[in-house]
Amino acid sequence: TETVELHKLKLAELKQECLARGLETKGIKQDLIHRLQAYLEEHAE
Rank of each mutant, 00 (worst) to 15 (best):
K29E: 11
L6P: 09
K8M: 08
E2F: 15
Q37A: 11
L23E: 00
E42Q: 15
T25S: 09
T25N: 04
C18Q: 00
H7R: 11
E41T: 12
R21E: 00
E41H: 07
H34P: 06
K10C: 13
H34Q: 14
Q37P: 03
A44Y: 08
A38K: 15
R35V: 03
V4F: 14
H7K: 06
E13R: 07
Y39E: 05
A44S: 14
K26L: 07
E45W: 06
E41M: 09
C18L: 06
I28G: 15
V4H: 12
R21N: 05
C18H: 01
D31Q: 09
E42L: 10
H7G: 11
R35W: 00
H7T: 13
H43P: 06
L19H: 11
E41F: 03
R21P: 00
D31E: 13
A20Y: 02
K8W: 03
L9F: 05
A44K: 10
R21C: 04
L40N: 15
E42M: 13
A20M: 13
K29S: 05
K15M: 07
K10P: 14
I28Y: 12
I28V: 15
T3W: 06
T25E: 06
D31P: 02
H43V: 07
E2Q: 13
K29G: 02
E5G: 09
L19G: 08
L32T: 05
A44L: 07
T3L: 13
E13A: 07
L11P: 05
E17W: 08
L36F: 02
L40D: 15
K15C: 05
E17G: 01
K26C: 13
E17A: 06
K29W: 02
L6V: 07
T1I: 13
Q30G: 09
V4G: 13
A44I: 06
L32E: 02
Q37H: 09
T3N: 13
A12H: 14
R35C: 02
H34W: 08
A20Q: 11
A20P: 00
T25G: 05
D31F: 01
L14K: 00
L40W: 11
Q30V: 10
E17D: 02
L36V: 04
E24Y: 03
L19V: 10
E13Q: 11
K8V: 04
Q37F: 03
A38Q: 11
E5Q: 02
K26Y: 02
E41C: 09
I33F: 06
E5R: 09
H43I: 05
L23N: 01
H7P: 08
T1S: 11
A12Y: 06
L36A: 02
K10Y: 01
Q16S: 08
H43S: 11
E5M: 11
K29Q: 10
L36P: 05
L40A: 12
H43C: 06
A12T: 11
L6R: 02
E42D: 11
I33P: 02
K26T: 15
E2G: 12
E45S: 04
Q37E: 13
I28R: 14
L19M: 09
H7A: 12
T3D: 07
L6E: 03
Q30A: 13
L14E: 00
A12M: 08
L36E: 03
A38M: 08
D31V: 07
E41Y: 14
H7S: 14
K26M: 08
A12D: 14
L11E: 10
L36K: 03
L32P: 01
E17T: 02
Q37N: 06
H43R: 12
L32W: 00
K8G: 07
Q30T: 11
